[in-house]
Write a protein that binds this DNA or RNA. Structure first.
Lengths: 334, 334
DNA sequence: CTGTTAGCGCATTCAT
DNA sequence: ATGAATGCGCTAACAG
């Protein structure tokens, strides 16, 4: 039925070891024999069985990727970065959505480990003790991607979310805004939620301003929730002159809600966010934002993983990628 | 080092066959022994090796997914549908971006086949003879996803792109528009490009209108290209009263370009598209579109693949999912 | 440069 | 209900 290395060996009149050498580009084969083997391979339509190879060599050239949700463009961008670099180093990726649910995350990690992946890229919510427990049973490297663990036990690649938020709010302050509200995320979410809120708070306090409770309201990262929170802010007095949103989508919701009230962005209320997805330049006015280099986070974390898998020495196990302020028309001086 | 089924057998005082039965939920095991084995597994921290299992059983519970670009939200949505259903049937997916490049597509298909996937989901550009050639060397089922082959040799799941475009343009016609321009895609791209153009053409001709050459212009599916093409249309006289775009992004670009010229959507020019991504409701005015059920295309194609992998009988190998007209404020009667 | 020999960890007959 | 034996297709020493 299926043609094996043994069939090729017989067809070419050599041993299976030689065929294996040819297939694996081992230089210790006479060009002539190599040619004979290639011809036999061609004639028989031989295709190496990566599973058998994996069992024998204990390497699968496959890495596991745990991601919250591939249909979220932020993560999809990261995934593309991961896959491009994986591809470059001849790895394939098994992708698992885990929706930031602890139980599901741990389950897929175990499945991936059963499948003998050569390494694991983890992108999730909070890294709990149970996660760490699961990672430790792995005999392969694990790197956290756009995710960090408090104890910093694992290599990771991310941006400094708190600093990113700080910089965004500082930009608003620099433009003369003082009444700055924030549409934040879930404060139990360490990076997108808590850290960004703390950056906001830090910038405000650093400027000698206090954070008004009514100026902070959580959304669920989605467009609609940005609208809802903005509705609340508009009713306040004094009304904020600027709004900082934890994600692009919520910021865009805020912009539209402001416009629906007959107010103008940025004249009446300035809006700024963190993310800088493609959508940021697809709204009117275009959205100012702190850019997260999502593709790079994926690419760099995969690159780091390849080094770890090859036991290469790695200088920095905790990579923080730079973020960047992208000013656009949704903000202006007060 | 690694604990194997053999270690568990020794620890539990049974044979490896029994351990295998327990792990695979074979009912022919006395509850007592089953318990003993589970305890040994627990004690040793045994984790079954899926690679070895795959070699022995010739099943990997892994399917290959070839996708154009996971960072494109359309495909990411499909991928999520695929993964959800795969997960439900206990399969994992190996994801490969191939950017609709023939050579890369064929290469990844071969890699996937080497990895002994139990099935293949192919999402790509044109399916050429070479693709078919590659698919035929597979001893596992292949299903085309949001892609079709002319000769209809392979099972597939898609929408009727031509009909979808026809319906959109018909809606515009029904509203009294006659000067309808189209921002089309690459006419070498069978589904998103050619089929949608043909739907437009069909609807126009069906209404007794001719397609004016200057009213049809190709973009590259992106926002910016929508703006560029719209710039051209605005300069025309007579100026079109409605524009049909082959994708949401191009449509949104068109809307903004129209607004940049001080014109109003839909009063001066109506805009409509095909896709209905999340962004369609995140623009002002909200974008009317023919909705493609991307998640379902992924889910249904994966479900079809599971049936094929289990040799279940399948009534319909050529699934066409229904599309739907979603009217929003970017269109109005002439 | 090439062949021989062992496993890799497991599922799966076939006995019992 | 359980065990012994075999082989899945390949890599990796080791010999020569």
């Amino acid at each position: 039925m299926t043609v094996t290395i043994y069939d090729v060996a017989r067809e070419a009149g050599v041993s299976m070891a030689t065929v294996s050498r040819v297939v694996n580009n081992n230089p210790n084969v006479k060009p002539q024999t190599r040619k004979k083997v290639f011809e036999a391979i061609e004639r028989l339509g031989y295709r190496p069985n990566a599973v058998a190879r994996g069992l024998a060599s204990k390497k699968t050239t496959t890495v596991g990727v745990v991601i919250p949700d591939i249909s979220n463009s932020i993560f999809a961008e990261v995934a593309r970065g991961i896959e491009d670099i994986a591809n470059m180093y001849h790895y394939n990726i098994i992708l698992c959505n885990a929706d930031k649910k602890k139980e599901k995350e741990i389950r897929v990690v175990n499945t991936l480990l059963e499948k003998q992946v050569d390494g694991l890229l983890f992108m999730g919510g909070t890294v709990t003790a149970e996660h760490i427990q699961a990672f430790k049973t792995a005999s392969v490297p694990v790197v956290l991607c756009a995710t960090t663990d408090d104890q910093e036990q694992f290599p990771s690649v991310d941006i400094d979310h708190e600093r990113a938020a700080f910089d965004a709010v500082q930009a608003l302050l620099d433009m003369g805004h003082q009444e700055i509200a924030m549409i934040c995320g879930n404060l139990n979410d360490p990076s997108n939620g808590l850290a960004r809120y703390q950056g906001y708070k830090g910038a405000m306090e650093n400027a000698g301003l206090s954070v008004k409770e009514q100026y902070v309201r959580a959304g669920n990262y989605r467009y609609e929730s940005g609208m809802e929170v903005m509705e609340h802010f508009i009713g306040l007095s004094p009304r904020p002159t600027a709004v900082f949103a934890a994600t692009d989508e919520m910021a865009i919701g805020a912009i539209h809600k402001i416009q629906d009230h007959g107010l103008k962005v940025p004249e009446d209320i300035a809006v700024m966010s963190v993310d800088n997805t493609r959508m940021a330049s697809m709204v009117r006015p275009q959205l100012a934002a702190v850019a997260q280099p999502m593709y790079d986070i994926g690419a760099v974390s995969m690159r780091l993983l390849t080094k770890l898998m090859k036991n290469e020495s790695v200088e920095n196990m905790k990579v923080i990628l730079p973020h960047e302020l992208v000013m656009r028309n949704s903000v202006s001086a007060k």
